[in-house]
Design a protein around this nucleic acid. Structure first.
Lengths: 133, 133
DNA sequence: TTTAAAATGCAACAATGTTGCAAATAATTT
DNA sequence: AAATTATTTGCAACATTGTTGCATTTTAAA
């Protein structure tokens, strides 16, 4: 939805609408290089700033696995300026390289005595449905 | 142990010994900036190459949380050229910023039908023992 | 429609990471 | 222990990635 921009109280510009449409088009997470290629009128600086705003507003979230180049995906849950609230894991296929979010029935809990855990980031690496045939 | 370099079959040089000693000195993960400051004779290029070799040989592992600058820590388990085999989680304290590895009693398992999960990376974000007092 | 606020894009810069190659050092062989 | 081979180091140069100030343009609000 393009109204997302209105809901998040950020200016609705052609550039942002285009970037948002690209993220919506993909069902998986994508790196900036893919966004670049999809953009009709691409500008590095504006893209960096757009990504930063989208991250801050909880429109997209960043996925970085083992220090590799970051991928970005639309937030499905109610994320906002105050933080991201995801209950999904990130899966990376070592065969086709795809990265995406997966909902799991029972999201793990970890208890560390004397610590306070506010957020759990879980990344699974393996073979996706297609590559595991 | 400095013999680690011999065991991993890589040349034992003063630079590598120094970098290894720095990692051993810290009980937590550290970014390259800290390694730099600790090094007597620092050279950016050699450091990058040393880190790369240490990663490949399974001497250290990389921790990247939410696209922030990577931190590095000694591998405690049997990691080698064929891969890293960790059964610990990575904890980041939002108060003091420290990042370190934590052993957990029961490392979570995630089952995704039709997928094959080879590795699970778990990052917990919250307050560490000191900051949670 | 006018005004105020915000976004864009250029130029310039800063930080991070890489590569070829010659010199230096470490490991191996004799 | 000395000579040979293999590897590492560090310089120069470059490539990539990300940031900032500022004037112009565009969006949102009055």
């Amino acid at each position: 939805m393009i109204n997302l921009l209105k809901n998040k109280k950020i200016s609705k510009t052609p550039f942002r609408k285009e970037v948002l449409a690209i993220f919506n088009k993909y069902n998986n997470a994508i790196p900036l290089s893919v966004v670049e290629k999809e953009l009709k009128a691409f500008n590095r600086i504006t893209l960096y700033r757009t990504i930063k705003v989208f991250l801050e507003k909880g429109i997209i979230h960043e996925i970085t696995i083992n220090g590799e180049v970051s991928n970005y995906a639309i937030c499905k849950e109610e994320c906002d300026t105050l933080g991201h609230h995801h209950q999904h894991i990130h899966f990376k296929c070592t065969s086709c390289g795809i990265i995406f979010c997966v909902e799991v029935d029972k999201f793990p809990t970890i208890i560390l005595p004397k610590y306070k855990i506010n957020q759990l980031e879980i990344q699974a690496i393996g073979l996706c449905q297609n590559c595991n045939l």
